[in-house]
Design a protein around this nucleic acid. Structure first.
Lengths: 241, 241
DNA sequence: CGTCATTAAACAGTATACACTATTGTAAAT
DNA sequence: ATTTACAATAGTGTATACTGTTTAATGACG
């Protein structure tokens, strides 16, 4: 039998779910670039910094890995994911398909309350437009998850949230400083089309916009930035082996 | 300090990754209905039956929960998911969108080797058509994941695999005994359209087929079957509380 | 008999211990 | 000086221990 010591400064596990909190925090940290892609995430250190044990961190890292924000390989430290450009393109392509489904589901079926919510959001976007980059970016992203939420389709919501967060990462890596002034106006047009049930128009605006972001706006630019050096080297090494 | 006992019959952890094995096994068991929807999955029992500890089981259940094959709520036992009809519809809708993206990606871009593989698969489907339900169903499903694989889009592959497996669950719950004799022919037509780059036709056949499965073929039928009884009861009990 | 309270058994959440693997630093040998 | 061997370190994989919560069983009381 094992002899136990009194556990001095240990609170007896009050909360039901530490993992969720850590998950949210870590996720935000990654999306908002507080943790740059490639950053090492040893379970111990992360655990210490959140005041939880490896068990919790481990489950969180697992979730984030599934979502593509963290990459893990066996017996190696987890790192903040740093997707390649082609992965990035792939994510954007899937996103286009998903958002089209969102639009199709919503066209002509928005309640007035929902319309109101959307218009209010666009107003907020307009207000934040001139100044404050991060805020503006966040709002632009939220427009899409907001739409997805309104479908009430649980899976669709999850997938859109996932691709949206991955796109944030990708844009941070490969996007040019800032090129989203066009968004607000188009968001307005999407809402209008949605309200009058003009599915085709809504889809085409949305698709166009995402397409633009994925190609002209961002990915085709210069992909090499400081933090990618390591990735590039590893690619070359693999090819040379 | 804690006093440790010698750990008598403990093997020193040979393998690097038990979780993957258990994951595969459990996943198959669920998809193939060896574990019916609603089956309780206590961490201890599952662990014992696979000869691993709760730690491993826990991570596996987490993964499966994300994929929608298992459902978990805090402090309750995990169960094999038993999606509602409306969830089912939602999954099918997302699936339609994803598969459309697959078709669009592939149209006019199939290599001859890929075409060969697809035709061979359809041949296998034809052979299995008359007899052996399970085999036939499995092949019909694999046609879709095979297509997805050919896109080379990692995320798309994962999503299609996920919705496909969820659809298996849903069909098992709400589908009529067997109504997939139409599939083979249409698969052939999709390949043809894909090869000659006729995106519109390929999309419409695929979409039509999935739509048919999701509405006429399956979901609108009688949703209540024996194994749902327990679920229904639990719903009522919860509502009555 | 049925209903509610009380207790016992399962079970999940979390932390920690130990085995194993990868990485890194360092010194010997060429 | 460069490479190889090996030890020390850091980190993951997994099992187990313990605490708190849910659920089932038991019994008291109406």
């Amino acid at each position: 039998m094992t002899i136990q010591k009194p556990l001095p400064t240990k609170r007896p596990t009050r909360a039901g779910n530490l993992a969720d909190g850590v998950y949210q925090a870590l996720r935000r940290a990654i999306i908002e670039q507080a943790l740059a892609p490639g950053t090492k995430l040893p379970e111990d250190s992360v655990g210490e910094s959140f005041g939880v044990s490896r068990t919790v961190v481990r489950s969180v890292l697992g979730r984030l890995t599934v979502e593509g924000l963290v990459s893990q390989q066996p017996n190696k430290r987890a790192t903040v994911a740093s997707p390649s450009i082609s992965e990035g393109r792939g994510v954007f392509q899937v996103r286009r398909g998903l958002e089209r489904t969102v639009i199709e589901t919503l066209a002509g079926r928005l309640t007035s309350a929902q319309t109101e919510t959307l218009r209010a959001h666009v107003t907020a976007e307009e207000r934040a437009q001139g100044r404050d980059g991060p805020e503006s970016i966040r709002l632009a992203g939220e427009f899409h998850t907001l739409l997805a939420d309104m479908t009430g389709n649980e899976l669709l919501i999850r997938y859109v949230a996932e691709v949206t967060s991955r796109c944030s990462l990708i844009l941070a890596l490969y996007g040019r400083p800032h090129s989203s002034e066009c968004a607000v106006n188009e968001h307005q047009m999407i809402i209008d089309a949605l309200v009058r049930g003009d599915e085709a128009t809504a889809v085409s605006i949305m698709d166009e916009q995402l397409m633009a972001v994925a190609t002209r706006g961002l990915l085709d630019l210069k992909p090499v930035r400081e933090r990618d050096l390591k990735d590039l080297l590893s690619d070359y090494r693999a090819a040379a082996k």
